[in-house]
């Protein structure tokens, strides 16, 4: 099953909508609730990242019999130092975003803790692709 969602820059009102939709689909497919919980944490963080840090982008989810693969492709600005961004506590979020309770530098570490495979590719000026896989 292939699902696609568009996310828009700074669209915090709809943050979580794609995650919620994918969660419902996984539940309908009777995926183990503990696995669904892990997918949801990772998905939400990736969705919020695209909204808070990027100029919008797309979420592609492919659900197979034994796994889900999610790819979040944003339109930039890109991450200059992925290793730095992956460390807990590091964030480039604006003060406004931090006041909402985001931008604590926990997003990417939260993703890493909850997925079986994570691949972050980024080119400054082009965009970032976060690909993650969770096995059922």
């Amino acid at each position: 099953m292939h699902l696609e969602y568009q996310v828009f820059e700074a669209d915090f009102v709809n943050a979580g909508a794609a995650s919620s939709s994918i969660k419902k689909t996984l539940k309908q497919l009777n995926v183990n609730p503990q696995i669904v919980k892990r997918v949801v944490v990772a998905l939400y963080e990736a969705e919020v990242n695209a909204i808070a840090h990027a100029y919008g982008g797309m979420i592609y989810a492919d659900i197979e019999a034994d796994k889900i693969i999610v790819k979040v492709v944003d339109k930039g600005p890109g991450i200059p130092d992925i290793e730095w961004a992956m460390q807990e506590g590091n964030s480039t979020a604006s003060p406004e975003v931090r006041n909402m309770g985001f931008g604590a530098g926990m997003g990417l570490p939260n993703i890493r803790k909850n997925v079986d495979r994570l691949d972050v590719q980024s080119t400054v000026g082009v965009g970032t692709t976060v690909e993650m896989e969770v096995h059922f």
Binding site: F12, V13, A15, G16, A17, S19, S20, K37, V41, Y44, E45, V48, M100, G101, F102, A104, M106, G107, N110, K113
Partner: peptide, 28 residues
């Protein structure tokens, strides 16, 4: 009051005490 902290560590059935009032609280 950090949404990623709640996302990463809260459990199903928990009460959530916070001062955040915007819609993302509901999403989480």
């Amino acid at each position: 009051d950090l949404l990623s902290d709640v996302m990463g560590n809260a459990m199903e059935g928990n009460i959530w005490i916070t001062l955040q009032t915007h819609k993302n609280v509901m999403a989480v």
